[in-house]
Design a protein around this nucleic acid. Structure first.
Lengths: 337, 337
DNA sequence: TTGTACGCGTTATCAC
DNA sequence: GTGATAACGCGTACAA
């Protein structure tokens, strides 16, 4: 293995001093064209690449890297988010180091610590459902921090959230308006903040529509995976315990569709989060859509803003959701277009 | 903003020397319990976090980071890949810095350079369809490098590929076996290596099945997006120019399904790459499935192996694909279960 | 077992 | 305009 050439090597090769090479590399202007040429030649000849890792230890310099901790990069929701963040970061000259917490509090904390030890410039984080450590217990200095999908539990961070309750409420009301009376909530554990919010919106809509009483009985929070969602919805179909479904996330929606297919029978359905093949359903699947890219861009812009000296008070941005009705929210007595 | 406490601060606070703190932090054993206690206390009191970025400039030390350059993190194929890589890397104590090249050669090269300047320990890369720079022109030393989805064009790298041609051949043969005679290829530009391979497999299958002549006329390579795929397949349906489709990637498959829905009529179809909602089709969509997670794990393990001193000859791993027939490859004269 | 002194690759200060 | 020289935060001979 060849050693990485250093500035010193370049300086030696070009017959100039270290500082002059540094100037050249950093694009400073006060430099003799002749020397500049010799330095360029030496850089090419030796294949010199500057060591940003070394440069970043100087005070005021950084590695221009943003750390991102999400639940699971394989989940399209998070990869879309990550892509939007990466896009904004890249435009500002930042790299993004991404890590998946798997919704495990300890793992999450370990990854956050590692990123801080790596001295990332900023941190964008989706806190796990059960945090193991409070941000208030993390020693200063903490880099600019943006919390995603969770309310600010810490005074020193900005937050970006979708209007989960509002979206769920709109979805549930749409089902009620289409004539459903026993609307079930199919989702994941209410330990998860977004689930709690979506369930609150669902419950509020039931109350508004005068369907309040049945809410508890119709709440399913064990749809942790697509398979579980499919089983739960299958049971609902067998028992006829509900006449419509609000699927509180993507996995629940797809699980429900699989159960419908299995049973050869469907219920009115609205899902939270749009997905690529929602249009392919028969009827196409109605959804509450959140602008995931906007969430990512907003988070990245908040971090970059702080890095650029923005000292305005920490704030929470709540982004609207949009109800997209495609037909699946209605009753379909029999198959057919 | 508070300054980050350094080892020197901790040493001062604990009344010991720098080296002793360094020992403590690095988990060495030869250390007086009393001093160890004082150091621990000082670390907690000051909120000391070691600066791995600084530590990594020492010879033999690194930032324990792997760089990953893909086309687009928002594409589920790449996010699945990235997740698998991240998973293996994390288990070995490595972080992953991810960047999207958007299939732009210059952008790709810029990102690779940046990652090398950041002194990543290894590099996993999906070369863009039209590379702007050859790896042979990149100055040594290059960190352990694994190429994904592309053949090795460079002697110093390992590569991981799926058996694109074999999968495409199997898909096309399945369509032929089900009775189709004019099987169209719907995909992206043949500039892309995987597309070229898939098209070669398709053409080989046509020849094998005695359907060779029509191959060129039935090759569509302008399905760059889902929308374009939908339009192209719509045209095929109108013209009746084909009696079956091999969709060479996910976007093409979904575009075709949308076109089918639009036209109220479908053709036998097999797609390349499985997708979450393939089961929801009516009939469910037959696909060639590649084990994306295995590809990611393999790539990560290759890099980590090299980092651990594996000096075996550079090699290309070709991973098998699997044909999953779910029904959509057959002719369906009319709707019905 | 602990401390001193130096080097890692880079940037910044300040003379020349 | 250019070049010694001193940091930056940490790890490691080597000496104590």
């Amino acid at each position: 293995m060849v050693r990485n050439p250093t500035m010193k090597d370049v300086a030696h090769e070009a017959g100039v001093s270290l500082k002059t090479v540094s100037r050249h590399v950093n694009g400073e202007t006060n430099i003799d064209p002749d020397l500049a040429g010799r330095i360029s030649a030496a850089i090419v000849k030796l294949g010199y690449r500057r060591n940003l890792s070394a440069a970043s230890i100087r005070p005021g310099r950084t590695g221009k890297t943003i750390g991102l901790v999400i639940s699971d990069l394989a989940n399209p929701y998070y990869s879309t988010l990550a892509r939007a963040i990466e896009s904004v970061a890249d435009a500002a000259g930042y790299l993004v180091t991404i890590a998946s917490s798997e919704e495990d509090g300890r793992r999450h904390d370990r990854l956050v610590d590692r990123l801080m030890e790596q001295r990332v410039d900023g941190l964008i984080v989706v806190p796990p459902r059960r945090a193991a450590r409070d941000w208030a217990d993390v020693a200063a200095p903490i880099p600019p921090l943006v919390l995603l999908d969770r309310p600010v539990s810490y005074a020193g961070a900005d937050a970006v959230l979708a209007d989960n309750a509002g979206g769920a409420r709109a979805a549930t009301l749409a089902l009620a308006r289409a004539g459903s009376r026993r609307i079930a909530f199919v989702g994941d554990s209410l330990d998860i903040y977004t689930m709690r919010e979506r369930h609150a919106g669902y419950a509020a809509a039931l109350a508004e529509a005068g369907l309040g009483g049945a809410g508890d009985l119709l709440t399913i929070t064990t749809a942790h995976t697509r398979e579980q969602a499919e089983r739960e919805v299958g049971a609902v179909l067998r028992d006829d315990s509900a006449d419509a479904l609000f699927a509180a996330n993507n996995r629940a929606t797809i699980g429900a569709l699989l159960a419908f297919q299995q049973a050869g029978r469907r219920l009115p359905l609205v899902g939270f989060d749009d997905f690529e093949t929602a249009l392919l359903g028969d009827p196409p699947v109605s959804v509450v859509s959140q602008d995931i890219e906007l969430m990512g861009r907003t988070a990245a812009e908040l971090v970059l803003g702080r890095l650029n000296g923005d000292t305005s008070p920490f704030a929470t941005r709540v982004l609207p959701t949009r109800l997209i009705l495609r037909g699946s929210e209605k009753h379909h007595t029999c198959a057919g277009s």
